[in-house]
């Protein structure tokens, strides 16, 4: 797996909870069926209030109404991303929409664990809040080997934190792959 992620950034505020990431009314589709699971991409982040959707200006739908994938690849969010319910549908929905990584100064525990154990998106911790340094639509480079993130528009460079002990699970692609590699069953 390449350790560089390049893509278009979508900026969100603090405390984006799982009801905003995937509203409860959309939790019933199958996560396996290829036709049905597309709806998770369609409705990803559809619960974010309009004025906060795509900062700083807001009013930018994450996935346009007639699409199943978003044009954005990287989410730059404020603190406590993924708080609220334990629904694994949340990191799954982001993955279905095409998100590769989330960058936030802190995560809610269950979201973080789900993202890692299910191998859906890489939850990367930034040193400090980066939301002031990105506009929705900017292009960013994430260099995981050197724990750096660059905003192509401004040239600014930011430090990311090491994944630490969960890096093994992320690199394996999830908890099952990790357990198999370690002969746990």
């Amino acid at each position: 797996m390449s350790n560089t992620i390049k893509g278009k950034v979508f900026v969100l505020g603090d405390n984006i909870d799982t009801d905003q990431i995937i509203p409860a009314g959309h939790l019933m589709y199958s996560l396996e069926d290829p036709e049905e699971k597309k709806f998770y991409g369609r409705y990803a982040l559809s619960g974010v209030p309009d004025e906060q959707s795509g900062l700083p200006d807001g009013g930018i739908p994450f996935t346009p109404e007639d699409q199943f994938e978003s044009e954005f690849d990287i989410i730059v969010a404020g603190r406590n991303f993924g708080c609220g319910s334990s629904r694994e549908h949340a990191p799954f929905a982001l993955q279905q929409a095409g998100v590769k990584a989330v960058v936030s100064p802190s995560y809610a525990r269950i979201f973080y664990r789900n993202a890692v154990d299910g191998g859906f998106v890489v939850p990367i911790e930034s040193r400090g809040d980066l939301t002031e340094h990105f506009n929705t639509g900017d292009t960013a480079w994430i260099d995981r080997d050197n724990n750096k993130m660059i905003n192509e528009r401004t040239g600014e460079e930011f430090e990311l934190l090491e994944l630490g002990e969960v890096a093994h699970i992320v690199d394996a692609g999830g908890i099952f792959e990790y357990a198999r590699q370690n002969n746990m069953f």
Partner: peptide, 29 residues
């Protein structure tokens, strides 16, 4: 598989919420 599983801590139990993947892991192991 629900974040409010922590409710059961009132009984002196360790209780916490997890996702589907972790639950599947427990179902098997």
């Amino acid at each position: 598989t629900d974040s409010h599983t922590c409710n059961a801590g009132a009984f002196g139990q360790f209780a916490t919420g997890i996702g589907n993947t972790d639950a599947a892991f427990i179902m098997g192991t």
